[in-house]
């Protein structure tokens, strides 16, 4: 099940958001060793985790199993504030219908195994797309590791590099812009074998009973 959490409904989702910040700390700081994100409270939160951020969270059996963050490119975001030089070839697109996509994760025990890992990841990506298409968002920017490129190509996305790859946290990474539309969603669903909507249609919290 996919939940979309914005400034408007986040008061209904505080426990889930906390659980998600904790998971991000486990994944990005402990597992991937991005030590600059380490925080004494064990919650990975940066300056872009503010009222402008939208969170797409996947849950199963009351647990958060994956997620992503969207930040409007008209507001300060990772590529504009921290890595502007990565967009040195094409420049950084900033518009009300373009959002920056960051912190895409799937918890470890949902990653292993071809079908299950791919399924959770597919749900999160489809959740992001469904939310974007319903909110007239036509493009996403992202700082991605190069190893994501083949996946996006296979899912039928158009991925436009904004600059040359650079080593970031020991991984070759690149800033990209990805135009999205109904076809992107259709091919992404087909790739992951997802039949229909993944997102909770009501923007209110249902009784998920998520334990933190």
């Amino acid at each position: 099940m996919i939940h979309v959490i914005t400034g408007a409904n986040r008061h209904l989702y505080e426990p889930e958001l906390l659980a998600h910040f904790r998971l991000r700390h486990e994944i990005y700081v402990m597992e991937r060793n991005w030590t600059n994100l380490a925080r004494p409270d064990g919650l990975e939160r940066d300056q872009f985790d503010n009222e402008d951020a939208t969170y797409i969270l996947a849950s199963a059996n009351g647990q958060i199993i994956g997620g992503s963050r969207l930040v409007p490119t008209t507001r300060p975001h990772l590529l504009s504030e921290v890595f502007p030089y990565l967009a040195s070839v094409r420049g950084l697109p900033r518009a009300i219908d373009i959002y920056e996509w960051t912190r895409m994760f799937v918890v470890k025990n949902r990653r292993e195994g071809r079908t299950m890992g791919g399924q959770t990841r597919g749900m999160v990506i489809c959740g992001v797309l469904e939310h974007c298409l319903d909110n007239s968002i036509t493009g996403l920017t992202a700082l991605i590791e190069m190893f994501w490129l083949p996946l996006f190509h296979s899912m039928g996305w158009t991925v436009v590099p904004l600059g040359l790859p650079e080593l970031i946290n020991g991984e070759w990474s690149i800033a990209v812009k990805m135009p999205i539309d109904e076809n992107t969603l259709a091919s992404t669903r087909a790739f992951h074998g997802i039949a229909g909507h993944v997102r909770l249609t009501a923007q209110r919290k249902s009784s998920t009973g998520i334990t933190v």
Binding site: L149, P150, S154, H192
Partner: peptide, 28 residues
């Protein structure tokens, strides 16, 4: 080299698409 790295990944993706092979094991 950075540019070649990038070009290679796009070239591979295009070849895979043209050959109609999903080179990712995620396919059905």
């Amino acid at each position: 080299k950075q540019a070649l790295h990038l070009v290679s990944m796009y070239a591979h993706a295009r070849c895979a698409a043209l050959m109609g092979c999903e080179s990712d094991g995620q396919r059905r």
